[in-house]
Amino acid sequence: MKAEVSRIVAAASAVAALGLATACGGGGGSDGSGGDGGDERAKRASRATSAATADPQEPAAGGALTKDLLEKAALADGDVDGFTVRKMAASDIVEDSVPAKPAACQPVADMAVFTSDPAAQASVGRNLTAEGERDASLALSLVLLSYEEGGAEEVLAGLRTAIGKCTEYEHVGYRHTGVGRRTAPGLGDEAVAYGFTASIEGAKVPTTFTVVRSGTTIASFMAMDMLNGDTLKVPSEVVETQLEKLEKTGKPTG
Rank of each mutant, 00 (worst) to 15 (best):
A219C: 02
K43C: 10
K87Q: 14
D230N: 06
A120S: 15
V238F: 00
E237P: 03
D110R: 10
K233P: 00
S123M: 12
V234W: 02
A130Y: 12
G82T: 05
R182K: 14
G82N: 03
A122C: 02
V239R: 01
S116G: 09
M1Q: 13
I200T: 13
L128N: 01
E170S: 15
E244Y: 04
V108R: 01
E58D: 08
A48K: 10
A74R: 10
V98K: 10
E95P: 01
V15A: 09
A54W: 08
G195Y: 11
A74L: 11
A219K: 11
T66Y: 07
D55S: 06
E237R: 09
R175A: 08
A11F: 09
V15H: 04
F221D: 06
L65W: 00
S146N: 04
E95Q: 14
A89W: 05
A198T: 06
S214D: 07
G38C: 10
S137D: 11
V211T: 15
G188F: 02
E148S: 09
D230M: 00
D36T: 08
S97Y: 00
A12I: 01
T66L: 04
S214V: 11
G132I: 10
Q242M: 09
I218P: 06
G150K: 11
K101Q: 13
K233V: 09
E247Y: 00
V238T: 02
T53F: 11
P59W: 05
P107D: 02
E95M: 14
G151L: 02
L69Y: 08
G29H: 05
A11D: 14
E71L: 13
T231A: 06
R134C: 06
L140D: 01
T210W: 06
A61R: 14
D55E: 00
V239A: 12
G32I: 03
A136D: 11
Q57K: 12
G173V: 04
T253R: 12
L138F: 09
T115K: 07
S137T: 13
K67Y: 00
G34E: 03
S13M: 13
R213I: 03
A3W: 05
K245F: 07
T84D: 14
G125Q: 05
L69P: 04
S91T: 15
A3L: 13
D39Y: 04
G132V: 05
G132F: 08
R47L: 11
S46D: 12
A12T: 09
P56V: 03
T210H: 01
K251W: 00
L187E: 12
G25V: 05
R182M: 12
P107M: 00
R126N: 01
G125S: 09
G254H: 02
A89P: 02
